[in-house]
C-alpha cells in the first residue's frame, strides 16, 4: 500500500459513522422492525384476551341456560310427587348445579350465594330424610312429602334465580369491571 492510499483510507476513517447514509438506513429499518414486533405483540395479546372473553361468555351462556332449566324443574314440584320422585329431583338438581357452578365458586361475587345454595341443599336433604320410608313396605303420602319439601325447594329455586341474575349482570358489565372485581 502506497502512502497516498494510506492517507485516503485515513481520511475516510476520520469521517464519523453517523454521517454515513447507510448507517441511518439500517437504523431506521431496525427501529421499524422493533415497532412492528411490539404492535404485533399487543395485537396478539388483545386477540388472546378477546378469545378468553368470548370463551367465558359462551360458558356463562351455557350455565345460564342450564340454571334456567333447573329453576323451571324446581318450580314444577307438585303434590303428586312421592318420596322417590322428589329424591331423584333433588339429586339431579344438586349434581347439575355443583357441576355448573364449580368453576365460578372462587369468584367473589358468586361465592356467597354458592355457599348459601350449599346450605339450602343440606337443609333440603335433612327435610327429605324426615319423609324417607322407614322400611320398603311403609309408605308416606305424597301430600306430606309435598308439604315438607315445598319450602326447602323454594329456597333453592330462589337462590338459583339470584345466581342466574348475577350471571346476567356479568354478561352486561365490561371485562374491565369484572377484572377489577375479581382482583379486588
Amino acid at each position: 500500500m502506497t502512502p497516498d492510499q494510506i492517507k485516503e483510507l485515513a481520511a475516510q476513517l476520520a469521517v464519523p459513522f453517523y454521517q454515513d447514509a447507510a448507517f441511518w438506513i439500517g437504523t431506521v429499518i431496525g427501529l421499524a422492525g422493533v415497532a412492528f414486533s411490539a404492535l404485533a405483540f399487543f395485537e396478539a395479546k388483545q386477540a388472546k384476551r378477546a378469545a378468553v372473553e368470548a370463551g367465558r361468555v359462551v360458558k356463562i351462556e351455557t350455565v345460564k341456560i342450564e340454571l334456567a332449566d333447573i329453576a323451571q324443574r324446581l318450580d314444577k314440584i307438585d303434590p303428586s310427587m312421592d318420596f322417590p320422585a322428589v329424591r331423584d329431583l333433588l339429586n339431579e338438581v344438586n349434581r347439575k348445579l355443583r357441576r355448573q357452578l364449580a368453576p365460578f365458586q372462587r369468584i367473589k361475587r358468586y361465592s356467597v350465594p354458592c355457599v348459601a345454595l350449599q346450605q339450602a341443599f343440606e337443609e333440603a336433604r335433612a327435610a327429605l330424610d324426615t319423609v324417607k320410608p322407614a322400611d320398603p313396605a311403609a309408605d308416606i303420602a305424597a301430600i306430606v312429602v309435598y308439604n315438607v319439601m315445598e319450602g326447602p325447594l323454594w329456597t333453592i329455586s330462589s337462590l338459583v334465580g339470584e345466581i342466574l341474575g348475577l350471571f346476567e349482570a356479568a354478561t352486561i358489565e365490561s371485562p374491565n369491571e369484572q377484572r377489577n372485581e375479581q382482583s379486588g
Binding site: K108, A127, I140, G151
Partner: peptide, 19 residues
C-alpha cells in the same frame, strides 16, 4: 293416621359482604 314432625328453616338473607 300419620303424624310427622319436620323442621322449617326460614330462608336466611344472603350476605352481600365479601366472604
Amino acid at each position: 293416621m300419620t303424624i310427622l314432625r319436620a323442621t322449617r328453616t326460614p330462608a336466611a338473607p344472603v350476605d352481600k359482604r365479601p366472604p
